[in-house]
Simulated assay, not measured.
Amino acid sequence: MSINDPRNPSASAAPLALYVHWPFCVSKCPYCDFNSHVRDRIDTDAWRAALLADMAHEATLTAGRPLSSIFFGGGTPSLMPPALVADLIAAADGHWGLAPGVEITLEANPNSVEAARFADLAAAGVNRVSLGLQALDNEALHFLGRAHDVDEGLAALDTAQQVFDRISFDLIYARPGQSEADWQAELARALAFGTDHLSLYQLTIEPGTRFATLVAQGKLTPADPDHGATLYELTQAMTGKAGIPAYEISNHARAGQESRHNLTYWRYGDYIGIGPGAHGRRTGKATLRHKKPENWMSAVTRNRHGTQSEQPLTGEDRAREALLMGLRLTEGVDLDRIAALSGISVPHLVDERTIDQLIDIGLLHRRDARLQVSAAGMLLLDAILPEIVTV
Rank of each mutant, 00 (worst) to 15 (best):
L67D: 04
A11W: 11
A383Y: 03
Y173K: 04
T209E: 00
W296H: 02
R7I: 09
N111Q: 05
G194K: 04
R366I: 11
P81T: 12
I274H: 06
I167R: 02
A11H: 15
G377D: 07
H142S: 14
T213Q: 14
W96H: 09
D182N: 12
I244T: 08
A319V: 07
N251A: 14
A156D: 08
Q308E: 15
R304A: 14
T330I: 07
T159H: 03
A188L: 02
A242C: 07
E103S: 07
A91Q: 15
L106H: 03
E114G: 00
W296D: 02
A17L: 14
L106V: 14
H57W: 15
Q202N: 01
T330V: 14
A14P: 06
Y201F: 01
V389I: 15
H227W: 11
A246W: 03
F24P: 02
R65N: 07
E206Q: 11
L231Q: 14
T105C: 11
T76R: 08
V102A: 15
H305K: 00
L323W: 10
S309D: 13
R289T: 00
E294G: 11
V26N: 10
G177N: 09
I3Q: 07
L18Y: 07
T221D: 08
H197M: 04
G377F: 10
I3H: 10
S68G: 15
E248C: 05
S69P: 10
Y271E: 03
A155T: 13
H290K: 07
D43T: 03
A156T: 06
T390K: 11
L121W: 06
M238P: 01
I42A: 05
H261K: 06
G284H: 05
Q217M: 07
R254E: 03
E103V: 02
S10A: 13
K219M: 10
G326N: 08
N262R: 07
A53N: 10
Y268L: 06
Q311C: 02
A124G: 08
H279F: 13
A299C: 04
I338Y: 06
P312G: 08
A56Y: 01
